[in-house]
């Protein structure tokens, strides 16, 4: 009894002791931080009081030299790669134009019916009805054509993003060094403000839909790469081991085991890519992309708040329709 009691007492005091030392540690850290802030403030105060000019103005401005250097670089790329960028630009313009014409050519009731069927079969009856009503609403405010242009830009961009993103994701999943290389690039891409993506497009292709497509592709690419990589790496290692034990070649392992098992995650990546493409396709109106974005931009410039609001709402409606339907698709795939 006595021993037990002492043990418990020890336990309590021991615990108390660690808690006390933890507190002391925390106070010490806070004191250090306070001291650093104090010194910094004091130094700033002194600099201003005694007018130390060297510390108030940067001694030199490297800006012009750097931008000059970059200008030269881009000029060089443009001159030497002209044929290449022109070829891309021309072909994309043609493809985009044809796609847009085709979408506009389909009579609106047919599109509404197809959207209803898609929403119903893939997601649910309610989603089908709501999606169809949303499309009707867009048509009723005379935004049908711009909406179809936006869809065309999105479709082209998403196709390109997927065509590059999934293979890059697979590559990243099969090699640790590729993944290490890609990760900071993707991190950087995802923290950049979205309009920064417009810059390379304008520089290489000038204003217009092609610049918009490039910006959209770049913006929508990261989630596709990331989730493909993640999906493949997350495949149950015991299944991969079983696959290896039967003598699968690396290629067989990839397309018979890893990729099929990663499909739900890859589809989640595609869903994100589609959503980001829609966001960018409207922002890209700033570089001359047609579509719903330009309607918002123009009406805001002319201070027509009502029109801007209607066009903005049309974008939201499209976003919701696309998200519901593609989400439904992802869910139906991961259930099976």
């Amino acid at each position: 009894m006595g021993i037990k009691f002492r043990k418990i007492a020890n336990l309590i005091t021991g615990k108390g002791a660690t808690r006390a030392s933890e507190n002391a540690e925390r106070i010490r850290k806070m004191a250090i931080i306070a001291a650093v802030i104090g010194i910094a403030l004091l130094a700033s105060f002194l600099v201003h009081k005694y007018g130390v000019t060297g510390a108030l103005k940067y001694p030199t401005n490297l800006g012009p030299e750097l931008t000059g250097l970059l200008d030269g670089g881009f000029q060089w790329i443009l001159v030497n790669g002209e044929w290449f960028f022109d070829a891309i630009s021309d072909n994309l313009k043609i493809a985009l134009g044809k796609l847009r014409d085709f979408l506009v050519w389909i009579p609106w009731p047919v599109v509404v019916a197809l959207i209803f069927l898609l929403g119903w079969r893939i997601a649910s009856f309610a989603v089908g009805i709501a999606s169809a009503l949303g499309m009707v609403a867009i048509g009723l405010v005379n935004l049908w054509e711009p909406a179809m242009v936006t869809v065309a830009i999105m479709m082209v961009s998403v196709s390109i993003a997927i065509a590059f993103g999934i293979p890059m994701g697979i590559l990243a999943a099969s090699s640790n060094s590729v993944e290490k290389l890609l990760r900071p690039v993707l991190d950087g891409m995802q923290t950049m403000p979205s309009f920064v993506y417009l810059i390379p497009g304008i520089m290489l292709f000038g204003l217009g839909n092609v610049a918009a497509i490039l910006a959209t592709v770049l913006y929508a690419l990261p989630p596709c790469i990331r989730l493909t990589n993640l999906g493949i790496r997350q495949v149950d290692p015991s299944v991969v081991e079983a696959g290896r034990s039967f003598g699968s070649s690396p290629f067989q392992l990839l397309y018979k085991v890893q990729i099929p098992m990663a499909v739900p995650t890859i589809m989640a990546g595609v869903n994100q890519t589609v959503m980001m493409a829609l966001a960018m396709a409207t922002i890209a109106a700033m570089v001359g992309a047609g579509g719903l974005g330009i309607e918002v931009l123009r009406s805001m410039g002319q201070l027509e708040e009502g029109e801007a609001f209607v066009a903005g709402t049309a974008i939201v409606i499209m976003a919701i329709i696309i998200d519901r339907i593609s989400q439904g698709y992802v869910l139906s795939r991961s259930d099976s």
Binding site: S238, V239, E241, A242, G243, S245, F246, K256, V257, P260, M261, V263
Partner: peptide
């Protein structure tokens, strides 16, 4: 050689 695993290692798809 062929192996049988504790957690089966079957392909769900």
């Amino acid at each position: 050689v062929a192996m049988v695993f504790q957690n089966f290692g079957l392909l769900p798809h």
